[in-house]
Deep mutational scan, measured.
Amino acid sequence: EVYKVKIKIERVLPNGEKVEEEITIEVEGMSEEELLALARELAAEPGVRIKEIEIEKLPP
């Protein structure tokens, strides 16, 4: 199964400015739980906050 994972994050820059970013990846052969863990890892940097995680199962 192939999933499209869209992660919206908010990053706080050293000057205090907040910037929103969106990361989209396609992943194959992982469960939804593994995808959530991967998304959290991607956003685990200091000053980064996850705003939204969207997981979509793509048709075969």
Rank of each mutant, 00 (worst) to 15 (best):
E1L: 11
E1Y: 13
E1A: 15
V2D: 02
V2R: 13
V2W: 13
V2S: 07
V2H: 13
V2Q: 04
V2P: 03
Y3W: 13
Y3G: 01
Y3R: 03
K4M: 09
K4G: 02
K4V: 11
K4A: 06
V5S: 00
V5P: 00
V5T: 00
V5Q: 00
V5W: 03
V5M: 15
V5G: 01
K6H: 10
I7S: 00
I7H: 00
I7E: 00
I7C: 02
K8P: 00
K8W: 10
K8E: 01
K8H: 11
I9Q: 01
I9C: 01
I9E: 00
I9M: 12
E10D: 13
E10Y: 02
E10R: 01
E10T: 03
E10P: 00
E10V: 04
E10L: 03
E10W: 02
R11A: 01
R11D: 00
R11Q: 02
R11H: 02
R11Y: 03
V12N: 07
V12D: 14
V12T: 15
V12A: 14
L13M: 09
L13Y: 14
L13K: 12
L13H: 05
P14Q: 07
P14C: 06
N15F: 05
N15R: 02
N15D: 10
N15Q: 03
N15S: 11
G16V: 01
G16Q: 04
G16F: 03
G16R: 01
G16E: 03
G16I: 01
E17D: 09
E17Y: 07
E17A: 12
E17K: 11
E17H: 12
K18D: 02
K18L: 12
K18Y: 13
K18T: 13
K18I: 15
K18W: 15
K18P: 05
K18M: 15
K18H: 15
V19W: 05
V19G: 03
V19I: 14
V19R: 11
E20H: 07
E20F: 03
E20P: 04
E20R: 02
E20C: 11
E20D: 14
E20M: 05
E21M: 04
E21T: 06
E21H: 04
E21S: 07
E21I: 05
E22A: 10
E22L: 06
E22I: 07
I23K: 06
I23G: 00
I23T: 02
I23M: 13
I23P: 00
T24P: 01
T24D: 08
T24S: 09
T24Q: 04
I25S: 03
I25L: 08
I25E: 01
I25F: 14
E26W: 09
E26S: 14
E26N: 05
E26H: 05
E26K: 15
E26R: 09
V27K: 08
V27W: 09
V27Y: 11
V27D: 02
V27F: 15
V27T: 07
E28I: 14
E28H: 08
E28N: 05
E28V: 13
E28F: 08
G29V: 05
G29D: 09
G29F: 05
G29H: 10
M30F: 08
M30N: 13
M30T: 13
M30A: 15
M30E: 12
S31V: 15
S31L: 08
S31W: 11
S31A: 11
E32C: 10
E32Q: 12
E32L: 10
E32N: 13
E32D: 09
E32H: 12
E32R: 08
E33I: 09
E33H: 11
E33L: 11
E33D: 15
E34D: 10
E34S: 06
E34R: 08
E34M: 13
E34P: 03
E34G: 11
E34T: 09
E34Y: 10
L35P: 02
L35I: 14
L35H: 03
L35D: 00
L36Y: 10
L36I: 14
L36D: 07
L36W: 13
L36M: 15
L36F: 14
L36E: 08
A37N: 12
A37C: 15
A37M: 13
A37Y: 12
A37V: 13
L38V: 10
L38T: 06
L38N: 03
L38Q: 03
L38S: 04
A39R: 02
A39F: 07
A39Q: 04
A39I: 08
A39V: 14
A39H: 02
R40W: 15
R40Y: 15
E41A: 14
E41K: 12
E41T: 10
E41Y: 10
E41P: 02
E41Q: 11
E41H: 08
E41M: 07
L42F: 03
L42G: 01
L42Y: 15
L42E: 01
A43Y: 12
A43M: 11
A43G: 10
A44K: 14
A44D: 11
A44T: 11
A44W: 14
A44G: 11
A44P: 03
E45H: 09
E45A: 06
P46S: 10
P46C: 15
P46T: 09
G47D: 14
G47C: 12
G47T: 06
G47N: 12
R49S: 06
R49K: 15
R49A: 12
R49G: 06
I50T: 01
I50V: 09
I50E: 00
I50W: 01
I50M: 01
K51P: 00
K51I: 13
K51G: 02
K51F: 08
K51Y: 10
K51V: 14
K51E: 05
K51L: 15
E52A: 11
E52P: 00
E52Y: 10
E52N: 06
E52R: 07
I53Y: 03
I53H: 00
I53Q: 00
I53F: 05
I53D: 00
E54W: 11
E54S: 13
E54R: 14
E54C: 12
I55K: 01
I55P: 00
I55N: 00
I55H: 01
I55F: 14
I55L: 09
I55V: 05
E56G: 04
E56W: 07
E56R: 05
E56Y: 06
E56D: 07
K57C: 06
K57V: 12
K57A: 04
L58Q: 09
L58I: 07
L58F: 06
L58E: 04
L58A: 12
P59T: 14
P59W: 10
P59L: 08
P60H: 14
P60Y: 02
P60T: 09
P60E: 05
P60M: 04
